[in-house]
């Protein structure tokens, strides 16, 4: 992988830092007329997800990170790994529990997810912004209670728990925003 000087830093560039691939979010060049120049950089560590402010000495070079995003369809989980397939090449890739993390509750068969691969291995799995899932369990809403008291919890097939309006019932399919974990609407079957 190529090396990148701080002069080439810009949003979206991925470099290795402390052995972890990082995505540069913002870069500001600070240069006193007489004296050392610096780059003040906001980065996201791609494995831990942490966002950090780092200060670099300008002119230093860092190894680029071989990181790429790819769209793959979710197939199934074998309990240890989550299997995805490229719908064009039919190539399959397995992501481990760590890469999937909390997003496992949004994995729906055949949905296209974004897998971030580092040296060919998935490090994060991002589900589509919206998924449709069936409710397996929720309290029957009390009749006449339409005051919109914030709804009630509903458990979905994947185990995710989402707050839904009182009129939504077990067995219905709902649309959920995976970025916020919030109910969007009912889906007509």
């Amino acid at each position: 992988m190529a090396n990148f000087s701080t002069n080439e830093f810009k949003a979206g560039l991925k470099i290795m830092l402390d052995g972890e691939p990082c995505n540069i979010l913002e870069n500001e060049y600070v240069k006193p007329g007489k004296g050392q120049a610096f780059n003040r950089v906001k980065i996201r560590k791609l494995i831990s997800g942490k966002v950090l402010e780092k200060t670099f000495r300008s002119g230093e070079s860092f190894e680029g990170a071989d990181v790429l995003d790819t769209e793959l369809a979710y197939l199934y989980s074998d309990g240890e790994f989550y299997h995805f397939m490229n719908n064009e090449t039919f190539e399959q890739i397995a992501a481990d529990e760590k890469a999937v993390g909390d997003n496992k509750k949004w994995l729906v068969e055949n949905d296209e997810c974004t897998l971030t691969l580092w040296n060919g291995t998935p490090i994060t799995v991002t589900p589509p912004n919206f998924v449709e899932l069936e409710i397996t369990e929720t309290d029957p809403g009390l009749k006449g209670d339409t005051a919109g008291t914030g709804g009630k919890p509903a458990t979905l097939t994947t185990g995710a728990v989402v707050r839904v309006p009182l009129f939504v019932q077990t067995g219905e399919v709902i649309k959920v925003d995976t970025r916020t974990g919030e109910y969007v609407s009912r889906v007509q079957k």
Partner: peptide, 22 residues
Amino acid sequence: QGIDMVGELPDRDSQLQLLFSI
């Protein structure tokens, strides 16, 4: 100052310049 440096600053003047700038 919460300045998280990547690597070391080479000398005292560089550190003073960084403090001054930030």
